[in-house]
């Protein structure tokens, strides 16, 4: 992996709450334009790692670098944090219309003429007809698509997805997976996807990392990892066995 291909670089990153370490990553590089899936059982530290990557929380120790910026102590500048955004498992929409929700991130950036961008993103997620509806009147799947449109409207360099299709019906899952593939392929958006669904990781991700107890126990090309895992715990997890 050449230097210019590396977007994120994590070195000796730990995160602890009340002296309990939930993330411990000696080294992790995330390539520009890749889809990296983080899989692992609940409590493995996947969502915490996403929060660290979005600079929502500082690491307890270690360094996180995004391009030229290295986080070490002081909070990151706005132009860095605004390059990254997250779509959470449960869509958290504002008590406003669908349009206003999608425009929200753009308004935060001082943009006022956002109609065309908002409508384009709504068209992408198939919700143009519901632009004026109240966001909270939508179904769960529609709300998640609004959350995705809102994240994409700000043209992020990095899109972090925390179980974005959990609890959704197969139709919405397929639609959201298509959108994820599309923005990655067409716009080169780097995507880090947390999922419990190993099949989804296999469908979408270029590389997959398996997390257990805050550690990345194995990372590699998705196809290779699924066919010939080197760590026995990875093999067990991918077969659906209980892993501790």
């Amino acid at each position: 992996m050449s230097e210019s291909e590396i977007l994120y670089s994590l070195r000796h990153v730990t995160k602890a709450y009340d002296r309990r370490t939930v993330v411990n990553i000696p080294a992790l590089d995330i390539q520009r334009g890749e889809i990296l899936a983080l899989v692992g059982p609940s409590g493995a530290g996947k969502s915490t790692l996403l929060r660290l990557l979005n600079f929502l929380e500082p690491p307890t120790s270690g360094q996180i670098a995004l391009d030229d910026f290295t986080l070490s102590g002081t909070p990151p500048p706005l132009d860095i944090t605004r390059r990254v955004t997250t779509v959470f498992q449960r869509p958290i929409l504002l008590n406003r219309s669908v349009m206003e929700n999608v425009a929200y991130g753009l308004h935060l950036r001082g943009q006022r003429r956002v109609q065309s961008v908002v409508m384009a993103e709504l068209a992408r997620v198939g919700l143009s007809a519901l632009a004026h509806a109240h966001a909270r009147s939508l179904s769960g799947g529609e709300q998640q698509r609004v959350a995705l449109a809102r994240a994409l409207a700000i043209r992020p360099t990095v899109l972090l997805l925390d179980e974005p299709t959990a609890n959704l019906d197969p139709g919405n899952v397929a639609l959201i997976e298509d959108i994820i593939r599309g923005v990655n392929r067409e716009q080169g958006v780097t995507i880090v996807l947390v999922t419990h669904n190993v099949f989804q990781a296999r469908r979408l991700a270029h590389r997959t990392a398996v997390m257990l107890d805050g550690n990345i126990i194995e990372i590699g090309d998705t196809d290779t990892l699924f066919t010939t895992p080197t760590d026995p715990r990875t093999g067990a997890f991918l077969r659906g066995e209980m892993v501790y």
């Binding site: 929502l56 955004t85 449960r90 008590n95 935060l108």
Partner: peptide, 26 residues
């Protein structure tokens, strides 16, 4: 308010002031 709301607002690029104002509006 939803405990995750503040995190979502910040994840969309809000400054601390923008976060507070949005939370108040919610």
């Amino acid at each position: 308010l939803d405990p995750q709301l503040s995190q979502q607002i910040r994840a969309l690029g809000a400054t601390p002031w923008q976060t507070a104002l949005t939370m108040l509006r919610e």
